[in-house]
Amino acid sequence: MATNGSSKDRELLPIGTQAPDFSLRATPDQRVSLSDFRGQPVVLVFYPADFSPVCGDQVALYNEMLDEFSTANAQILGISVDGAWCHLAFGKSRNLHFPLLSDFEPKGEVSKQYGAYHDDNGESSRALFVLDAGGIVRWNHLSPDGINPGADGILRALDALTPEQRGATRAARAS
């Protein structure tokens, strides 16, 4: 079990704010940007470390739920400070079918912007965000590092999105 954060822990990026864009490596030769998914909801999963027991259980759960997220038109992205090669090995070992992004250099920069970083141990905290199709934070949740937050909160947050927030009318709005 990872250590808990200190009093220096940050506040999560609040509900209602525009989520800052980022571009992070998903594999050693591929980058993924948040803006790639504009027009659909995004589930951001910040987690402390590849291969740690709770993280393994948590990502294994989300990995089984990809068709549920897809039904909600949502894309899930995992983010930790592990390097892209580590993510590759972790993803292969667990048969993961969603991107794990590497917040590695400058270390933790994106996690810090989202208030999902432990300054004392240099890892992302176990934070969840649901962003709507316009990139606005609609739900967030901070879990103690040793507790797997599950997916019920994510699903309820996705259920609560309006059709427009889901991106259902994005073609109409874009004109």
Binding site: D57, Q58, A60, L61, E64, M65, E68, N148, P149, G150, A151, D152, L155
Partner: peptide, 12 residues
Amino acid sequence: DFRNGVRSGVNG
């Protein structure tokens, strides 16, 4: 079963 488990808060 899996779906309603997730909704009920099953996390593993």
